[in-house]
């Protein structure tokens, strides 16, 4: 068992004209984990996937999959990855079964092997009922699921998924997540891009937040939330007194909403407890109507790090 990263990206640069899609991206993914690359539109997520799947040559930097360089050893890289791109790249004018069979034959499973594998996958991922209908009659969620399944007709160590759930309803999204979890349980390493913080929170062991082509933060979802700390929200009679007291406690400038009589302050003191807040306010003579300690959502982390307007 080695501890070398399965996917490693160092200082990756890719420019299209004057636009830097990637501008020094770094990331590393350990075996058997899920890494979510999270970023706004145009942050370079898709370009990163395209470099790793040998579809685009980077201008500078290195990208390796299982130690194979994407530029120097593209054949080895292709034998190590499965790709599900941003569009469901399945053929609408074929049945689900034919889609998988043809891919199986391209992957040299043989006619009989390809047929058996298609049946197995359709059964296992709950697509058997629609299997012999043309894919154009399928729902968007089922099509995406077929596309995901198509990326592991032959199971590879690494799966690259570009926004696998964008535009899907919550139920289809949950089904895609379940499939990804099942693959990871079987030992697959997954790199997925997403715009949904919730998705990163649910699936990922590691989140890499990218903005303008570079990584701005890396860590587990919990780590990233901790960097923003905790928010204290109170509703009081006397907002001025509460603001003074909270400011002293949190060590930051509180936000005051005089109309609703609310005061809110962020603190990096992750050990702060609710009783401690109440005691502090009480000692300062503030009459508290309501008080809450709130862990931040990944949204807040994301907005803070990328500086995007909410």
């Amino acid at each position: 068992m080695t501890h070398d990263p399965v996917v490693s990206v160092e200082g990756l640069v890719k420019a299209y004209g004057s636009v830097h899609a990637l501008d020094g991206l770094d990331l590393e993914i350990a075996a058997g984990t899920v890494c979510a690359v999270l970023g706004p539109n145009g942050a370079g997520k898709t370009t990163a996937i395209r470099v790793l799947s040998t579809l685009v040559t980077p201008d500078a930097g290195r990208a390796r999959v299982l130690g194979h360089d994407v530029v120097e050893q593209p054949g080895e890289v292709r034998r190590s990855i499965g790709l599900a791109g941003q569009h469901a790249a399945v053929d609408d004018d074929l049945t689900g079964r034919e889609n998988l069979q043809i891919l199986g034959r391209m992957l040299h499973l043989g006619r009989r092997g390809a047929r058996a594998r298609a049946t197995e996958l359709l059964d296992r991922f709950d697509l058997a009922e629609a299997a012999d209908r043309l894919v154009k009659t399928w729902s968007g969620g089922m099509r995406r699921r077929l596309d995901l399944v198509a990326s592991f007709v032959v199971v590879r160590p690494v799966l690259l998924l570009d926004e696998p759930t964008t535009g899907l309803d919550p139920r289809s999204r949950t089904e895609i997540w379940a499939t990804v979890r099942e693959l990871v349980a079987g030992g697959t390493t997954v790199l997925l891009t997403t715009q949904y913080l919730e998705e990163a929170d649910h699936l990922a062991d590691q989140v890499v937040i990218v903005d303008r082509g570079r990584s701005v933060a890396t860590g587990s979802p919990a780590d990233l939330k901790a960097t923003v700390g905790v928010r204290i929200d109170v509703e009081v009679e006397d907002v001025a007194a509460a603001a003074r007291a909270l400011g002293a406690l949190a060590g930051s400038e509180p936000e005051v909403d005089p109309d609703r009589r609310r005061v809110s302050a962020a603190t990096l003191d992750g050990a702060l407890t609710l009783p401690a807040v109440v005691r502090h306010l009480d000692a300062a003579g503030v009459v508290v109507r309501d008080v809450a300690l709130r862990r931040p959502t990944l949204d807040e982390v994301f907005l803070q790090l990328t500086g995007a307007a909410a």
Partner: peptide, 10 residues
């Protein structure tokens, strides 16, 4: 994306 998928296969 079909062309991309085929290009990514060995």
């Amino acid at each position: 994306g079909s062309v991309d998928r085929f290009r990514s296969l060995p």
